[in-house]
Computed example of a mutant assay.
Amino acid sequence: MKYRLLVLAGIILLSCQSFYAQEEKSYLDHSFTHVVYFWLNNPESAEDRKAFEQSLSKFLSVSKYPKTKFIGVPAGTPREVVDGSFTYSLILSFSSKEEQDLYQEEKAHLIFIEESEHLWNKVVVYDSVGILKT
C-alpha cells in the first residue's frame, strides 16, 4: 500500500511539473520582444493570405530562437489610438538581444522573407527590451 502511494505521489508530481513547464512556455519572455506588422499587397486575396500564413507557420515551426510566438490579425477595436490598418502582426519574444540577432540571420527566417516578401508592400518592426517584469 505504501509503495502504491509513493508511485501515485510520484506520478502526480511529474504531472504537475510537466503542466507547469508547458504553462511557463506560454508566457512572454520579458527580455526582448520583436513586433512585426505586415501589410499585404492584396489583403482581400484568400490565396495570398493562405500563402503568407503557410510560409509564416512553416518558418515559425522550425525557428529555434523565439521563446514565444504570436500571429494575429486586427482585432476590430475602433478607437482613435488603435491602428488596425495592418493585415497581420507577429509578436515574438527572445531571452536576449543576442538571441534575436541570431534569429535575424537564421536560415529559416531568411527563407521566409525570400518566399513571402512579394506578398507584402509594407513591414514595420518594433523591437523592445524589457525594463520591468510584471
Rank of each mutant, 00 (worst) to 15 (best):
F32L: 08
L60K: 05
S26R: 14
Y103N: 10
G76R: 05
S96Q: 10
S85P: 00
P43M: 04
S15T: 15
K133T: 12
V82K: 05
S96P: 05
E44C: 01
F38A: 00
K67E: 10
D83V: 00
S93N: 05
L14Y: 08
Y20Q: 15
V124Q: 12
L8K: 11
R4S: 10
E106R: 03
L102S: 12
D101C: 04
S95E: 12
S55I: 00
H118E: 06
A46V: 10
E98H: 09
K50V: 03
S116M: 04
A51C: 02
K133G: 09
F112T: 03
L56T: 03
E114K: 12
F86D: 02
L132T: 13
C16Y: 15
H109A: 04
S55F: 01
V82E: 11
M1W: 09
A51N: 04
E47A: 15
G72H: 08
F52Q: 01
F52K: 00
L56N: 04
I71H: 08
F112K: 02
D29M: 04
F86Q: 02
L90D: 09
L5T: 11
Y126R: 08
R49K: 14
K133F: 06
P78V: 02
T33D: 11
F59L: 09
S85A: 02
A21C: 15
K133C: 05
E105D: 09
S85M: 02
M1Q: 11
A21K: 15
V7R: 11
L132G: 09
R4H: 09
Y88W: 03
Y27F: 13
R79E: 07
T33Q: 12
H30D: 11
